[in-house]
Design a protein around this nucleic acid. Structure first.
Lengths: 345, 345
DNA sequence: CTGAAAGCGCTTACAG
DNA sequence: CTGAAAGCGCTTACAG
């Protein structure tokens, strides 16, 4: 930890006061152009490095934003993170990222650490099982919070997806293909997102007067391993479902893999639909039909929402923003058994 | 940005000086147990939050470590990042992560930002095309640096993989299967890692007296798209290669996909080997034979190397550490056309 | 348009 | 075992 020159050194070298140096560094219009240039020149000559920590301490505001993600092994969240980081960086903020791996303990630890680091705001995709009162607690710290993907009540800014609508689309699509026995892989009772997705599926089945056997709603890990387990379960049922709606692409990948291992092909032996449209969904064998809400768009929305909250320093408190994107269904071979020509390849 | 209580407030509330409070917070043994308990109680009652920024400013040392990653869309780097973060967190450091997306400009920007944030050390997987003198420049800042995956000379701590050995293993394996015309997909002239991988392939071909046609060394993007392009190129050659060694798993995924699209199967029409053994390699159709150096092990090594450097405050400068893991070949169906039973499934 | 002064919330010798 | 004092590198009223 070497010290390096400070604004004091620049002031001495440029023959001005450190107030002036500070103002130049902030590009204040109050300083005459020539003076400013002289100061900048001195800073360059000395190899000056701005100490953001000291500035934050004195200025009482910070330019770092914390970002807490539950699962980076799911590429969807990586795409989201990249989008968020891009927008924040453009706005001049530094992003402090942390990964909780769905662990509440880790989440508690990183949140404390971020609070100690004095983050200006927080974007978080909460770990499964996060206590309901966490958003309120974070808000009581005076730190603006935006939730992504996983809503927790109506009192906190949230950017997510209309899951019920998406899973209705997916189910509808399979019914149009003539399927009547459709399973749902990835049930997770008690979690908002899982409930929304299951409801989208169930309500669509009901609307078409299709009955749903209990065993079709399959409780599995939300990973490729879970998808493999789901396929084995499905092929043990009789009569067995001819299609499956998966909780997300990770689960669907496991489904495709297990089918292949059994010498069967998705789209023929079993129609498969995923959710998230991660980049890899286009490259699976066969390519995966999946719901797309646009990680990039969601990430951009989340950052903008937080930035808006940070600008709004005073004045009447703006109302809570809750935005839920409407997903589209991207149809590929896994649900129809027919090759779909790739566009612009 | 609300202010919250400071050590001054705790001091007043506990009836001691702020020096004492500071020492208690640092768990100094110099403070009597009862006094310490009284202070902690007051801190709890006031809802005190430690201000790490102020501590770093005064203490002249920081507990945040910067981590700069070139490509988070490649799951290998995500696995690496997760391992690094875990170790650093255990050691009480906060990780400032940034993603460059292989852009030199972004890399320059995030490095400057991290320097302003006063990071204690830096772990970096440099973007392609990073100027040779960057490691020396960072070291001149007085910030310890560990390079991961992409070596840049012998004067900087580095954790990587013995790529030449790995690609020799991969090529050897294909030759053992009876292949004599073997292609290499993912050539990138001038980059160290690409050179090492190509050399491992070429030297093994030479050792077996197998000649290599120029066109077999295929220059493609290091993405699934590149893999698809490589397959098309291979099937245009005559006589055509019967096997391909891919730069990494991302390229190999594209190869598997394009083969499937052509109605062919990897392992039969074309033997395929990848590199990195990302989690998804186990779930592709067919499963992918690939080189494994252990992202977890590499990440752990990289963090430990940096932590060791940070401990060593003074004394004679320790010699540069350069560690290169020896990869293993994980054999799956894509290279042999035969299903390999998964272990413990 | 510029400077002197106070202070952000801590840590760290130093003294007792 | 504890306290008084100085100071880390900045910003921000305030004065001129």
């Amino acid at each position: 930890m070497k010290s390096g020159p400070t604004i004091q050194d620049i002031a001495a070298s440029a023959g001005v006061s450190k107030s002036t140096v500070s103002l130049v560094l902030q590009e204040s219009p109050r300083i005459k152009a020539e003076t400013a240039e002289k100061v900048r020149e001195a800073a360059r000559a000395l190899g000056y490095v701005y100490n953001r920590g000291a500035a934050n301490l004195r200025g009482r505001r910070s330019t770092t934003i914390g970002m807490v993600i539950n699962d980076l092994t799911n590429p969807f969240f990586v795409e989201l993170l990249v989008a968020i980081e891009r927008v924040l960086a453009q706005a001049g903020y530094t992003t402090l990222m942390a990964h909780t791996a769905e662990s509440i303990e880790t989440q508690t630890r990183v949140l404390r650490s971020m609070r100690e680091q004095n983050v200006a705001g927080l974007i978080m995709s909460p770990a499964l099982g996060t206590p309901d009162n966490l958003p309120a607690e974070i808000q009581s710290w005076g730190v603006p919070l935006v939730l992504v993907m996983r809503p927790m009540g109506t009192n906190v800014d949230t950017v997510g997806v209309n899951n019920a609508h998406g899973f209705a689309l997916a189910t509808e699509h399979l019914i149009q293909q003539g399927h009547t026995r459709i399973a749902f892989a990835g049930n997770r009772k008690g979690y908002t997102v899982a409930n929304q997705r299951r409801e989208g599926y169930l309500s669509t089945m009901a609307r078409h007067d299709l009955s749903v056997s209990d065993e079709w709603i399959i409780d599995v890990e939300l990973t490729p391993k879970g998808g493999r387990d789901a396929v084995r379960a499905i092929f043990d049922m009789k009569p067995r479902p001819t299609a499956v709606v998966c909780y997300n692409d990770q689960v669907a990948f496991g489904v495709l893999h297990e089918l292949d291992r059994m010498g069967k092909r998705a789209g023929q032996a079993l129609a498969v639909v995923g959710c998230d449209n991660v980049v890899a969904a286009e490259h699976t064998n066969p390519p995966l039909t999946t719901l797309s809400a646009g990680a990039d768009k969601l990430g951009t929305m989340a950052s903008s929402t937080l930035l808006a909250r940070l600008e709004q320093t005073d004045g009447p408190k703006k109302p809570v923003i809750q935005y839920f994107a409407e997903p589209d269904l991207v149809i590929r071979e896994s649900s129809i058994g027919i090759r779909v020509p790739a566009k612009a390849d």
